[in-house]
């Protein structure tokens, strides 16, 4: 009885249908826990959390240096006054790129080559921001004080939008950025 104390001995091992279900459930939990390490060796999409501590001012300085050295153009967000103009920057294939999230823009815009691998340094200067690459729907966290390194290989061409998906104040929903893949 569920509502009164048990006075008869109640310790019995599982039996019958219950035992069958328990077996199925344990097996499934085992499969699920093996999938994650398996994907680290065989799968191509993993979040390793590679990161280094960095002062926001230092990260800004590194980004400005990266922009000055690799700038290839200017992108003007159509109809988005908050964002204004951002430089378009093309990192060398296999090289490092820097991306800042701040209220309320992603800076700078990046131009990448299909099939090349880049180390994207992602950080935030003021509040936490969410890097959400659309329409692919890939999401990573940008946290002030941490240089979050994403080793990324674009495999499709086109214009991609970075949406902010961590609440960062009143302009949050208009905070966007661009990645162009050629």
């Amino acid at each position: 009885m569920s509502l009164r104390p048990l006075t008869a001995p109640w310790f019995h091992g599982p039996a019958g249908h219950e035992k069958i279900w328990l077996g199925c459930a344990i097996l499934w939990c085992f499969v699920m826990s093996l999938m994650m390490p398996y994907w680290h060796f065989r799968g191509k999409q993993n979040s390793t959390g590679e990161a280094y501590t960095v002062k926001p001012a230092d990260f800004l300085a590194r980004t400005e240096k990266f922009v000055a050295a690799n700038r290839v153009g200017t992108y003007k967000h159509p109809g988005n006054a908050l964002l204004g103009e951002v430089p378009v920057v093309e990192p060398p294939p296999g090289g490092d790129a820097y991306l800042i999230g701040r209220m309320w823009q992603w800076y700078p815009a990046l131009r990448l080559r299909q099939g090349e691998t880049y180390r994207i340094h992602l950080s935030a200067l003021d509040l936490q921001h969410g890097f959400s690459l659309q329409p692919l729907n890939m999401n990573f966290q940008a946290v002030p004080g941490y240089d979050h390194v994403l080793t990324l290989t674009p495999t499709s061409k086109g214009e991609f939008t970075i949406v902010c998906n961590e609440f960062c104040g009143i302009g949050h929903s208009s905070m966007t950025g661009k990645i162009f893949v050629e």
């Binding site: 680290h40 999409q45 993993n46 959400s132 999401n139 966290q141 961590e166």
Partner: peptide
């Protein structure tokens, strides 16, 4: 890994 296509959506 699946969280990559779900986090904060």
């Amino acid at each position: 890994q699946i969280n990559i296509i779900a986090h904060n959506t």
